[in-house]
Every structure is written in structure tokens, then in C-alpha cells.
């Protein structure tokens, strides 16, 4: 029995647990807006575009979030500007910009090899997070959760219907910036946990699963937060016994939960499970 409690005996594991859970909850909440807005690719782009900022922060001994946030927002502005100037499709502009940013990040890492390992950036290091970094993640997560708690109705209106947002006298540009800023912040946090490659999953899968479970937005937020947090916790726990990368297990768990729900949900392929048959 005591074997099952083993992971909680180590301080780095305990820290890993609460950091992962907190990031999971934050990502889960934000993922609801990201998937409904159709910003999945943009979320992925920002999670890669923060990389040069992370490296520069390391070099300058700034808090990671400062540089990461700046480079994330620069990329967002760049994507918007490129699209406007060139008339290229949105996903093309996103593709051009975020790969360029990510390439700069890789260049910087290889130019200053001792500072930060590429592996950490790409795959995260949930169990190796230092106490002061953990504190930073705590602040970022609580800030994002607070903003969503206070502004979710405006963000929801912006996500659902931009023209109505304008008609209500609200600033579409302001809400757009707010959402981009939240994504950039959460991306830095999640990057340290699961790495740049898997941030995308944290920002999409919990919301997608929750979408299949309910037709009410507040319920969707709740489910996504529970899924994001619970599966992050579960993933770290399992990774201890399996002795594999925590980030990998977290994301794989999310997919393992998503799939049966897809099969049974009335929105997904519910007709497979429903006795009445047929999708409404």
C-alpha cells in the first residue's frame, strides 16, 4: 500500500504534482476559448514562438516569463501584420512567423550551449523545476485563472461573435490582445512542464474533450479544468512508476480519455452507444 504513496515522499515530486495540476487547470480553462475560436494553430505557434524569449531571458537572467511574453506577443503582431500586408491566408502567415521565431530560438540555444538544453525546451522538465521557477509558474497560473474568472463573459462573446462584440461597444482588438497575452503566458508555463512540442496538446485536448461532454459553456469550462488538472496530476503519478517522461504521460492520458468520450458523446459518435441511434 505504502508503495502507492511513494511519489509523495520526494519534494521534487510533490512540487511536480502541484505545478502540473495548476498548469493543467489553467491550460484547460484557456483551451475552451482556443478551440471554440478556431485558434488551435495559433496556440501552437505561440508556444513555439516564445522559445527565443525563453533563451534570451536565460542569457540576461530575467524571469523566463518576461522574455517569453515579449517574443510571443511580437510573433502574434507579426502574424497579424504579415497577413494584412501580404493577403496570404492566416495559416500561411502563422506557419512562416512561428517557424522563424522557433529557428531563432534554436540558433540562440546552439550559440550559447551551456545556458539551456534543447531537450528541456523541447520536452520540458516537470520534475526538475527549481523552487523559484515553480513560484513563477504559480503566479502566472493564478493570474490567468483570475483574468478568466473575471472576464470570461467578454472573452466568450468575442469568441462567439465578433460583430456583436463591436455592436455591444466592446473592443475586439482589446479582447484579441487579452486572449493572445493569456495564450503566450500559459504557453511559457506549459513549456516548462511538458515542453514546446506538447504545449499544443495541453491547450487543445481538455477543451475538445469538454466540448464533447456538454452544450453549456460554464460546464465546459469546469470539465476542461477538471480534465486538465486531474490528468496532469495522474500523468505525473503514473510517470513515477513507469519511469518515463512526465509530460509525455500527461498528454497521452489526455488522448486516452478523449477517445472513449468521442465514441460515446452525443456530439461525437454517440450513435455507436445510443440505443435510439442517429445524431441529433
Amino acid at each position: 500500500m505504502s508503495v502507492l504513496l511513494d511519489p509523495f515522499a520526494y519534494s521534487f515530486m510533490v512540487r511536480g504534482f502541484w505545478v502540473a495540476t495548476l498548469i493543467g487547470v489553467t491550460c484547460g480553462l484557456l483551451s475552451c476559448f482556443v478551440i471554440l475560436k478556431g485558434w488551435s494553430l495559433l496556440g501552437d505557434a505561440l508556444s513555439h514562438a516564445v522559445v527565443p524569449g525563453v533563451v534570451v531571458s536565460h542569457l540576461m537572467a530575467w524571469p523566463l516569463v518576461v522574455g517569453a511574453f515579449i517574443s510571443g506577443m511580437l510573433a502574434a503582431v507579426g502574424i497579424g501584420g504579415l497577413r494584412k500586408l501580404s493577403g496570404l491566408k492566416g495559416d500561411t502567415s502563422i506557419g512562416i512567423m512561428f517557424t522563424a521565431f522557433f529557428a531563432v530560438g534554436m540558433l540562440l540555444i546552439s550559440a550559447f550551449p551551456s545556458m539551456l538544453s534543447l531537450t528541456t525546451i523541447l520536452f520540458g522538465n516537470l520534475l526538475g523545476i527549481a523552487p523559484h521557477d515553480a513560484l513563477q509558474l504559480l503566479v502566472i497560473s493564478l493570474f490567468c485563472i483570475g483574468v478568466i474568472a473575471l472576464r470570461w463573459k467578454d472573452l466568450l462573446l468575442f469568441t462567439f461573435d465578433e460583430q456583436q462584440t463591436i455592436g455591444q461597444g466592446l473592443s475586439v482588438r482589446g479582447l484579441q490582445l487579452l486572449m493572445l497575452a493569456l495564450i503566450a503566458l500559459v504557453a511559457v508555463a506549459a513549456l516548462q512542464a511538458v515542453g514546446a512540442i506538447l504545449v499544443m496538446a495541453m491547450l487543445i485536448t481538455p477543451g475538445a474533450t469538454a466540448f464533447l461532454l456538454t452544450r453549456r459553456f460554464p460546464a465546459m469550462l469546469l470539465y476542461a479544468a477538471l480534465l486538465g488538472g486531474g490528468l496532469a496530476f495522474g500523468g505525473v503519478y503514473l510517470s513515477y512508476f513507469l519511469d518515463v517522461s512526465a509530460g509525455g504521460v500527461v498528454v497521452l492520458l489526455q488522448f486516452i480519455v478523449f477517445f472513449p468520450i468521442l465514441l460515446c458523446s452525443p456530439r461525437g459518435m454517440g450513435w455507436l452507444c445510443s440505443a435510439r441511434g442517429g445524431v441529433r
Binding site: L156, L157, F160, D161, F211, F217
Partner: peptide
């Protein structure tokens, strides 16, 4: 989109 008729009118 996961909103009800009433939610939309409230917007």
C-alpha cells in the same frame, strides 16, 4: 457553439 438561446439573447 455551446450556448443556449437564452445565453445568446443575453449577449
Amino acid at each position: 457553439f455551446p450556448v443556449s438561446v437564452q445565453d445568446v439573447v443575453m449577449m
